[in-house]
Amino acid sequence: MLVVDRLSVAYGSIKAVREVSLRVEKGEIVALLGPNGAGKTSLISAIVGLVPSAGGKVELDGTDISRKRTEDIVRLGATVTPEGRKIFGDLTVGQNLRLGAAVRRDRDGIAADIEQMLTMFPILRERFASRAQTLSGGEQQQLAIARSMMSRPKLLMLDEPSLGLAPRLVEQIFGLITELRAKGLTLLVVEQNAYDALALADRAYIMNSGRLQFSGRSEDLLASDDLMEHYLGTGTGGHAGAPG
């Protein structure tokens, strides 16, 4: 579904991403791991065109999207739930969801999807008319994911969905990710919280200093303490999540 071929990102003279290649197949959950500053966010920002790439190619379902605008890429079915949630704080929960569906014209379908989101995230139903900035961190994360779902993406890229959330909420969000896959969504999950992310992903890529360091099946990573230690700096059972 998504093919990234030797993609680079540069900010001025600083290279944030150096020739990274990866693939995400339809129906997969793929984890993109690595410490803070590894270039993960830059990579997915470049995939959706929010930052210009400095070389390389991105294909979505066989279409070259490397030169396309963000809004067109989203319309083609790939979107990002941004890091730090970035909900529209001045708007209500309902308005946030509505903007999520801004590209769609099927009124009934939108109403049905909103209903579905409210069933999936009961807290959003309770807070439907509240301004989004009054929501707690976990609620905002749920809103951000629900908002992304409203455009009916084929590929959803979640940037640090567990960031700043209590363990119980992390569990809930990760449970949700599995649920979304069951509905046919393809997911690329960017995480520092490697251990939990690997538990739900089929495959994983590990980045460091802008480069791809490892790619392989999650089970293989989890099974090998050496690999975990080497790439993620964690031993057996240790929670990863390299801080700051």
Partner: peptide, 20 residues
Amino acid sequence: LAMRAAAKDFNTVRLMGIRA
């Protein structure tokens, strides 16, 4: 709504597929 949202964060508005 998009205009109000863009006042704070234009990029996230674009992530909704709304044309800048």
